[in-house]
Computed example of a mutant assay.
Amino acid sequence: MKTLITLIIVFILSISNLSSQENQQEILIVGTMHTVPKIVKNSYKPMLRFAKKYKPEAIYVESPMANDSISWEYLKKGWSKGYQKFYKLSDSLQKTFNYNNVKFNATIGKNFSSMSDDDLDYLIKSFIYKRDNGNYELYTYLKKYGVNGSKNPTRHEDGDLTYKLALAMNHKRVINMDDQQTNKEYHLAWNKCSKESAKNGNNTANSKLYKKSYNSAILPAVFRKLGKHTNKRKSLQQLHDMASFSYVIKDTEGCKEGRKYFDERNMRMAKNIAKQILVSKKTKNIIIVGAAHVIGLEKEFKKNYPHLKVILMNEY
């Protein structure tokens, strides 16, 4: 009798564990090359096929969050001319645009193919008003290229991967998750580290690592496997090491500062993503992000959000 009871308990627990695993929220991280050269303009096609097969329920993009006032305070006069222009448009429309939430929800509820130019114009203005750059870019892309996206490669992750994926999956919104609160400080630290490293071997070590990373990508790029190569753990680690100054032979004040700001940015990006995933309850989430951030994000998720299953593109 005891044996029977034990078997029943084990069976119930196994069913419970299986159900828990099936409902576990997961994060698939895809590292991108941002803009690729013309000679390898089709590099994102295999990555798009892979992402479509995954069938994500949510797409997270490397774009500033609308409510991140600290990042926007920097970006309004920061490194990106595109973000500067977007901020000015947003600042202006927040004073003049007659936003209507009922109209917005009714318009965005339509099928992509049913949206008129007037609908798209309203949604574009609404996302500018909301300071939602990721979706402003998505609907601008939709208006320019239509529901199938650009016929010719744009050579950028947004036009060739992110927005084509969103349109194919019928996702009315992509989800912003970037953090650029200390981007200015990071670039200042980068310059400082470079100057400090002129004679201690650090710059030479960085150049060697860059050449090694570049040379190893040539052959895969020729055979349209640049995306797969970029997402190899070895490649991701090299990119992480360069961006986080982990290559240094002798640490300096500037290199330490740069590493600190890079790690903190990854930490805040992971937090932005995890908070939104937990609220959404969605199971299959894809993160499309610059490849140099993949290792850092994976580390942050595993450390601070162990209940989320983290998968890298090449390990799916």
Rank of each mutant, 00 (worst) to 15 (best):
K2F: 13
T3R: 15
I5F: 06
V10K: 04
I12T: 05
S14P: 02
N17E: 13
L18A: 15
S20N: 14
E22R: 12
Q24L: 11
M33F: 12
P37S: 11
V40F: 10
K41G: 08
S43C: 11
P46K: 04
L48C: 13
R49E: 15
R49Y: 06
F50W: 10
P56I: 01
A58M: 12
I59V: 02
M65F: 07
A66D: 09
N67L: 11
D68L: 14
S69T: 03
Y74C: 03
K77M: 07
K81P: 05
Y83K: 01
K88Y: 13
L93F: 03
K95G: 04
T96V: 05
N98A: 02
N101K: 15
K103A: 10
F104N: 00
N105W: 09
T107N: 10
T107F: 04
I108W: 02
K110L: 15
D119L: 01
D119W: 08
Y122F: 14
L123D: 11
I128M: 14
I128P: 04
Y129H: 06
D132K: 06
N133G: 06
G134E: 04
E137Y: 14
E137P: 07
T140H: 13
Y141R: 10
K143L: 09
Y145C: 11
G146S: 12
V147N: 12
K151E: 14
P153H: 02
G159V: 01
G159H: 02
D160L: 09
T162F: 05
T162W: 02
A166K: 03
H171R: 13
R173H: 15
V174A: 09
N176K: 04
D178V: 00
T182G: 01
K184N: 10
K184M: 12
E185L: 03
A189K: 07
A189N: 07
A189T: 00
W190H: 07
W190P: 07
S194E: 05
A198L: 13
K199E: 01
A205F: 04
A205S: 15
A205L: 08
N206K: 05
N206H: 02
S207T: 12
Y210T: 00
Y210I: 08
K211V: 01
S213K: 01
I218Q: 12
I218Y: 13
P220Y: 00
R224D: 00
L226A: 12
L226R: 11
G227H: 02
K232Q: 14
R233W: 07
S235C: 09
L236G: 09
Q238M: 13
H240N: 15
H240G: 05
D241V: 02
Y247H: 08
E253I: 15
G254P: 01
C255M: 10
K256F: 08
R259V: 04
K260F: 12
D263V: 07
R268D: 11
M269N: 06
A270S: 11
A274M: 13
I277R: 08
L278S: 10
V279Y: 11
S280Y: 13
A291N: 01
V294E: 00
K299F: 03
K302W: 12
K302F: 01
K303G: 10
P306F: 08
V310Y: 02
E315I: 07
E315M: 11
Y316S: 14
Y316D: 15
